[in-house]
Computed example of a mutant assay.
Amino acid sequence: MPVQYIPYQQINKQKWDACIESACNSLVYARSFYLDAMAKHWDALVLNDYEAVMPLTWNKKYGIAYLYQPPFTQQLGIFAPANTDDILHQLFITGAKQRFRFAEIFVNFSVGTAQVNFILPLQQPYEITRQQYKNDLLKNLKHAAKFHLSYVSSHDIQEAIQLYQLHYAQRMPHVHQHDYARFSVLCQSAKQKGLLLIRKVINDDGATIAVGLLLKDKQRLYNLMSTVTKEGRQCEANHFLFDQLIKEFSGQDFVLDFEGSSIPGIAGFYQKFGAVNEPYFFLRYNHLPWPLKYLK
């Protein structure tokens, strides 16, 4: 099974995207438009004629190319029409190691350290899904109902990103302004493709107190950015936001991908909705020569 290394300029994007979209483990992060926007550089490992693929997102430091995880790109890995096995995993990992001697990436196959990701299937009617809600969530939704909140659609990408930066940027010092600029470009591209979804909660004064920016494909709704203001917390606006989102898309063939998290408070929030863990994995290796081996 020949796995070829293909540099970016030689990737057949039509075949690439066809492979990603038809993959049994398809994820929007691996689509070419997503990688073009968020990765500083990316090449590929390809099995035969795009029967299975693995994006290689890379950067350079001290003149040495290494694999890294682009911001707002939860996981990548190997994508194929059928489930992959350990033999194929090793073929792709070996191919990556032959080109890059250092890697810290998140992948969709079992290797390295498991990471937490919560998902909620939406195929059931809303009333059935709501039966999975935890009691404290139901209490919070009852509290939210006292504030006459409104759940509305939005097309304002910049409002969603700026609110997120205002409230959460300090928690993510590794994400820089140019990363948010790349993310804005990604969202514009997704909007043109009909893959962008923004929903927000407004109060009686018309102020935005919670907002969710998601991407969607044929299988999933990806919670890329959700923000709640201080006022929004006081009236449980984030609980209301996701409850209404679930209600809007219930009975459709989607999975709501909450995108994490191992942080207890965030994990607990997603679990209130009946979400279950679908893990992904952190792959790290370091085959750099001394003394570079000890430099990050």
Rank of each mutant, 00 (worst) to 15 (best):
residue 4 Q to S: 11
residue 5 Y to R: 04
residue 8 Y to W: 09
residue 15 K to P: 00
residue 15 K to Q: 03
residue 17 D to H: 07
residue 19 C to M: 01
residue 21 E to G: 03
residue 22 S to M: 11
residue 27 L to E: 07
residue 28 V to S: 07
residue 28 V to E: 10
residue 47 L to Y: 01
residue 50 Y to S: 02
residue 54 M to H: 01
residue 54 M to W: 03
residue 58 W to V: 09
residue 59 N to Y: 00
residue 63 G to R: 02
residue 64 I to K: 13
residue 68 Y to D: 14
residue 68 Y to T: 15
residue 78 I to K: 01
residue 82 A to L: 12
residue 98 Q to D: 09
residue 100 F to M: 07
residue 108 N to Q: 08
residue 109 F to Q: 04
residue 111 V to H: 08
residue 113 T to G: 05
residue 116 V to D: 11
residue 120 L to E: 06
residue 120 L to T: 05
residue 122 L to F: 11
residue 127 E to W: 02
residue 132 Q to V: 01
residue 135 N to M: 12
residue 135 N to C: 05
residue 136 D to Q: 10
residue 139 K to M: 06
residue 149 L to T: 03
residue 153 S to D: 06
residue 155 H to T: 14
residue 158 Q to A: 04
residue 163 L to Y: 01
residue 166 L to H: 12
residue 170 Q to H: 08
residue 175 V to F: 04
residue 186 L to N: 02
residue 188 Q to I: 07
residue 191 K to I: 00
residue 201 V to A: 10
residue 216 K to W: 08
residue 217 D to C: 15
residue 217 D to Q: 02
residue 223 N to Y: 12
residue 236 E to K: 13
residue 238 N to I: 10
residue 243 D to K: 06
residue 245 L to E: 07
residue 252 Q to D: 02
residue 259 E to L: 03
residue 261 S to Q: 08
residue 262 S to E: 06
residue 265 G to W: 01
residue 270 Y to G: 03
residue 275 A to F: 02
residue 276 V to F: 12
residue 281 F to H: 13
residue 285 Y to F: 10
residue 294 Y to D: 11
residue 294 Y to N: 15
